[in-house]
Design a protein around this nucleic acid. Sequence first.
DNA 1: GGATTCTTGATTAACACAGTCGGTAATAGA
DNA 2: TCTATTACCGACTGTGTTAATCAAGAATCC
Lengths: 144, 144
Amino acid sequence: MKLSKKSEYALRALLELTMAHGKTTLQRHEIAARQHIPVEFLEQILLALKRAGLLSSRRGMKGGYGLIKSPNEITLGQVIRILDGPLAPIGCVSKTAYEKCRECPYADNPQCPVQHVMGAVRDAISGILDHYTLADFAAGSHKQ
Amino acid sequence: MKLSKKSEYALRALLELTMAHGKTTLQRHEIAARQHIPVEFLEQILLALKRAGLLSSRRGMKGGYGLIKSPNEITLGQVIRILDGPLAPIGCVSKTAYEKCRECPYADNPQCPVQHVMGAVRDAISGILDHYTLADFAAGSHKQ
DNA sequence: GGATTCTTGATTAACACAGTCGGTAATAGA
DNA sequence: TCTATTACCGACTGTGTTAATCAAGAATCC
């Protein structure tokens, strides 16, 4: 039930990029310095976010990163899935990356008690993270 | 955001012990066979649950394991914490194992956006797992 | 052309996860 | 009392993940 450092750094980096959005772009080292993130590690995180289509970038002097979409079109759920994979605690209740549980006496039987409770947990997590946008995040509150 | 195999096996083992509760005790190999769990791995799980005060045990012939408390006094949250540690996605929002986040620009400032959203996630997870008892679990449904 | 910055890929050390193994201690039954 | 059975305990192992670090390449601006 743990969030990786990678995802945490990604959220903090996107926080900076959200605040800069519309005004300017930010360079790796600026983000790293403000959020105390190792710059080389941050680099691969920003690259992953770029490949996923969340960021644009520009090389050379005056280069840097910027959000492509509006901060209220990006949810924290999307971000965490990019870096940590599915939100579901167990493969057999994932909606974005379902995986049939092998070696379970209940197989893919929907009566499975584990599926029942973990499905509820998945829905609760997704209910928050998939409705919480970067705009909410930067504002520090969640307008539901 | 993932449940370990250890916790999953623990839940499945406790499912068997709940069904047997009041009638009989169960031996490692019975639980292992019914739930398809490697018996030596199951062993250390049962031992951990015993040390945590959830199970009683008896050695030798006619030995085995049994629940100490009533199934509606044990929650899935308790069980998962024993094997996987805190439910919170991040140390700085854990209620059972709080840890101040070092190297975060917001430190322990309650305005921290990460704390805000992850606190909500923690509460959602705990809201389910700390109110879901073994009795609910075995019945396959949750009476709120 | 040279400084700057992003881009890519490889590599690393430390740790956690999932499982295995060998030996010890208690209990029941013969 | 002997023996079979079962739980108990600690150490060990392989595999993969996490959290970086590093070196070299490619685009961009002055």
